[in-house]
Design a protein around this nucleic acid. Structure first.
Length: 107
DNA sequence: TAATTGACTTACG
DNA sequence: GCGTAAGCCAATT
């Protein structure tokens, strides 16, 4: 047992991925909400850091994560790929922005 | 242990 | 609406 009663560190990633996997097709979530729903309020950057580490072939809907302004935070060339995937699910971007009022997912 | 980093957010001008 | 600045927080160095 133990020597280590602290959080596994890996926990944050697991929780965030779990929430991410629950975001339905055709909806989006902000970094802040993703972190908060995973149990890390105000740790939006943690969500971003987690996403950055995801393998390129992940099945998780990483593209459904956008910033609080409804804009894509991922730098090019990833941004183009994300935009493409979003539109493929019927999420239209107006002037590079997703209408959060319409597509934002919050249970 | 301390400093740096970052797919963020909010407040201001 | 846009750029800048400051605030936040866990992971990484």
């Amino acid at each position: 047992m133990g020597k280590n009663a602290q959080t596994d560190g890996n926990d944050a990633i697991s929780r965030i991925c779990r929430v991410l996997a629950s975001v339905p097709r055709g909806r989006v979530i902000t970094y802040g909400d993703l972190a908060e729903m995973a149990g890390y309020p105000r740790a939006a950057r943690l969500a971003g850091q987690t996403l950055r580490k995801l393998p390129r072939d992940t099945r998780l809907p990483w593209h459904r994560v956008i910033n609080a302004q409804g804009r894509i935070s991922l730098p090019e060339p990833g941004a183009q790929r994300q935009r493409e995937r979003l539109e493929r699910e019927g999420i239209t971007l107006l002037k590079g922005r997703v209408e959060l009022a319409k597509y934002r997912w919050q249970p």
